[in-house]
Lab assay of single mutants.
Amino acid sequence: VTTYKLVINGKTLKGETTTKAVDAETSEKAFKQYANDNGVDGVWTYDDATKTFTVTEMV
Rank of each mutant, 00 (worst) to 15 (best):
V1L: 15
V1Y: 14
V1N: 09
V1F: 14
V1E: 13
V1G: 10
T2N: 12
T2P: 07
T2W: 12
T2G: 08
T3A: 06
T3C: 12
T3S: 07
T3M: 11
T3H: 06
T3I: 13
T3R: 05
Y4V: 02
Y4S: 03
Y4P: 02
Y4Q: 02
Y4M: 00
Y4L: 02
Y4F: 12
Y4H: 03
Y4K: 02
Y4W: 07
Y4E: 03
Y4I: 03
K5S: 05
K5F: 12
K5P: 03
K5V: 10
K5C: 08
L6Y: 02
L6F: 05
L6V: 03
L6M: 04
L6S: 01
L6P: 02
V7W: 04
V7N: 05
V7G: 00
V7Q: 06
V7D: 03
V7A: 03
V7H: 05
V7Y: 08
I8D: 02
I8S: 01
I8A: 02
I8V: 08
I8C: 06
I8M: 07
I8E: 02
I8Y: 06
I8W: 09
N9A: 08
N9S: 06
N9E: 10
N9T: 08
N9K: 11
N9D: 09
G10C: 14
G10L: 15
G10A: 07
G10P: 01
K11I: 15
K11C: 15
K11N: 11
K11T: 13
K11G: 09
K11D: 07
K11R: 11
K11S: 11
K11M: 13
T12G: 09
T12N: 13
T12P: 04
T12A: 08
T12C: 15
T12F: 14
L13H: 12
L13A: 08
L13Q: 10
L13C: 15
K14W: 10
K14V: 10
K14P: 06
K14R: 11
K14M: 09
K14D: 05
G15E: 12
G15H: 13
G15P: 04
G15A: 13
G15T: 14
G15F: 15
E16H: 09
E16L: 09
E16V: 12
E16C: 15
E16F: 12
T17H: 14
T17E: 05
T17V: 15
T17I: 15
T18Y: 15
T18G: 04
T18V: 09
T18K: 06
T18L: 09
T18P: 02
T18I: 09
T18W: 15
T18C: 14
T19N: 11
T19M: 15
T19C: 15
T19E: 05
T19K: 07
T19L: 15
K20G: 06
K20Y: 12
K20H: 12
K20C: 14
K20D: 14
A21F: 05
A21M: 04
A21E: 05
A21C: 11
A21Q: 08
A21N: 05
A21V: 03
A21D: 04
A21G: 07
V22H: 12
V22L: 11
V22C: 13
V22S: 11
A24R: 15
A24W: 15
A24C: 14
A24V: 13
A24I: 12
A24F: 14
A24Q: 13
E25G: 08
E25L: 12
E25K: 11
E25I: 11
T26S: 12
T26R: 05
T26D: 08
T26E: 13
T26A: 13
T26P: 01
S27T: 05
S27C: 13
S27L: 04
S27V: 14
S27A: 15
S27M: 06
E28L: 15
E28A: 11
E28I: 10
E28M: 15
E28Q: 11
E28H: 12
E28W: 15
K29I: 11
K29N: 07
K29F: 07
K29P: 01
K29T: 07
K29Y: 07
A30C: 14
A30N: 08
A30I: 15
A30L: 15
F31Q: 00
F31D: 01
F31L: 05
F31S: 01
F31I: 01
F31Y: 02
F31R: 00
F31E: 01
F31H: 01
K32I: 08
K32Y: 05
K32F: 05
K32M: 08
Q33M: 09
Q33L: 09
Q33S: 09
Q33R: 10
Y34I: 07
Y34C: 05
Y34F: 12
Y34P: 01
Y34E: 01
A35F: 03
A35S: 04
A35H: 03
A35W: 03
A35G: 02
A35Q: 01
A35I: 08
A35M: 09
A35C: 15
A35E: 01
A35P: 01
A35V: 10
N36A: 15
N36I: 15
N36T: 13
N36D: 12
N36S: 14
N36Q: 14
N36L: 15
N36H: 15
N36K: 15
N36R: 15
N36Y: 14
D37V: 08
D37F: 07
D37Q: 11
D37R: 09
D37I: 09
N38P: 00
N38W: 13
N38Y: 13
N38V: 14
N38G: 04
N38R: 14
N38F: 14
G39R: 05
G39N: 11
G39M: 06
G39Y: 05
G39T: 03
V40Q: 02
V40F: 10
V40W: 08
D41H: 14
D41K: 13
D41M: 12
D41R: 11
D41V: 14
D41Q: 13
D41L: 11
G42Y: 03
G42V: 02
G42H: 01
G42F: 03
G42A: 02
G42L: 02
G42D: 01
V43K: 08
V43R: 07
V43P: 03
V43N: 07
V43T: 10
W44K: 01
W44I: 02
W44C: 02
W44Q: 00
W44S: 00
W44D: 00
W44N: 00
T45S: 11
T45F: 08
T45Y: 08
T45V: 08
T45N: 07
Y46E: 01
Y46H: 00
Y46P: 00
Y46S: 01
Y46A: 00
Y46M: 01
Y46T: 00
Y46V: 01
D47C: 09
D47S: 05
D47Y: 03
D47F: 04
D47E: 06
D47I: 04
D48N: 09
D48Y: 07
D48G: 06
D48Q: 09
D48T: 07
D48H: 10
D48L: 06
D48E: 13
A49Q: 11
A49G: 08
A49D: 11
A49Y: 09
T50D: 04
T50Q: 06
T50K: 06
T50V: 05
T50G: 04
T50S: 10
T50P: 00
T50F: 04
T50R: 05
K51T: 03
K51E: 03
K51W: 04
K51R: 10
K51F: 09
T52I: 05
T52G: 00
T52H: 01
T52C: 04
T52L: 03
F53S: 00
F53D: 00
F53Y: 07
F53K: 00
F53I: 02
F53T: 01
F53R: 00
F53E: 00
F53V: 00
F53M: 01
T54D: 02
T54K: 04
T54E: 05
T54W: 08
T54N: 04
T54F: 10
T54R: 04
V55A: 02
V55P: 00
V55S: 00
V55L: 11
V55D: 00
T56N: 08
T56Q: 06
T56M: 07
T56A: 04
T56R: 04
T56V: 07
E57F: 06
E57A: 07
E57P: 07
E57N: 04
E57I: 09
E57M: 07
E57Q: 09
M58L: 13
M58Y: 14
M58Q: 11
M58N: 11
M58S: 12
M58V: 13
M58F: 13
M58T: 13
V59M: 13
V59P: 13
V59F: 12
V59W: 12
V59Y: 13
V59T: 12
V59R: 08
V59I: 12
V59S: 13
